[in-house]
Design a protein around this nucleic acid. Sequence first.
DNA 1: GATTGACATGTAAGAACTGACATATAAATA
DNA 2: TATTTATATGTCAGTTCTTACATGTCAATC
Lengths: 174, 174
Amino acid sequence: MSLRMALLGLLTASGPASGYDLTKRFESSVNHAWHAGHSQIYPELAKMAADGLVTVGEEGPRGRKTYTVTEEGSRRLHDWLVTKEHFRPVRDEGALRAFLLPMLEPEESVPLLRREAGVYAARLAELEALEASKPRERETRFGRYALDLGIRQMRMMRDWAEETADRIEHAARG
Amino acid sequence: MSLRMALLGLLTASGPASGYDLTKRFESSVNHAWHAGHSQIYPELAKMAADGLVTVGEEGPRGRKTYTVTEEGSRRLHDWLVTKEHFRPVRDEGALRAFLLPMLEPEESVPLLRREAGVYAARLAELEALEASKPRERETRFGRYALDLGIRQMRMMRDWAEETADRIEHAARG
DNA sequence: GATTGACATGTAAGAACTGACATATAAATA
DNA sequence: TATTTATATGTCAGTTCTTACATGTCAATC
């Protein structure tokens, strides 16, 4: 369902597109919120067309197919967005590793956390650059709040990793 | 792999247990980091036994089976924890909804965000209560950093939802 | 003695996802 | 002209996850 909604959202935000386009749009936008590759996107678009959520245009060069959202598709996306009861259970590998972290010795966990803090910091810098560069056009309005959320997320993870490393170091010495 | 590691972690942290126990431990601890139900846990334990990561004790009352981590299991968990290259692609439904949020009218999105901020605030209160109540025993050391992470996560989500609602309201009026 | 609830284990169909394989065309570069 | 790169679409086997079904025991309450 989530993949469907992400695709309907992208089609609504930036207009009709091919599976190939959508795969790239995924990479450059929703990817921080939801990941999907082309091998998932192509079959899903076919199912969505069968279910009347999108229509397929005539084949263009290189067999290109262009998908457009239908009224039904719009309605379904709207309904999904407004309905609150369907949160997926959490499955966050970073958090799982955090959970298991106390199993390691400080000599192992501290450098690990510092390294991870670095990864989060780099990701944060990327997102901040993206935010600064992006003009406030119609299409770019979509995902604006998500970008802000992504930035907050990275900042939080970086701080958590750094401060947890400090705590462990302090406990090991004290 | 993640499920395996979560199970090995729980078995290491709180000692030998049955699938039933592990299902409940999952609910009360790792659940904020990784979710799994009994229908996933039972078959996984069987496979882990076949792979030599755990051993199965004799059947107790009501067909109860007790699993214990082997040396091999310990080693594998340790290796997994120390290795950094295997982050799962993000799939966060909350973030996806955040991405699609600008598609709604302020009259719809603002109350939605306020309601969600309430949910996050409630969850935050729960986790803070848990942190305050938990004695610092051997078993409870596991998951301590994850609990802190969970608290930070909830706080961040609550703030994001609240502040985004403010921004949208302000933009709609201004 | 009967019923209820917590304990305890499983299966199985279907959806969602991963990673690799497979194919072909148009445009740009060497 | 030949080669490479980007465009464009697909399939498929295997894994993971979801939801529902299915079964039986032990302890406590009624």
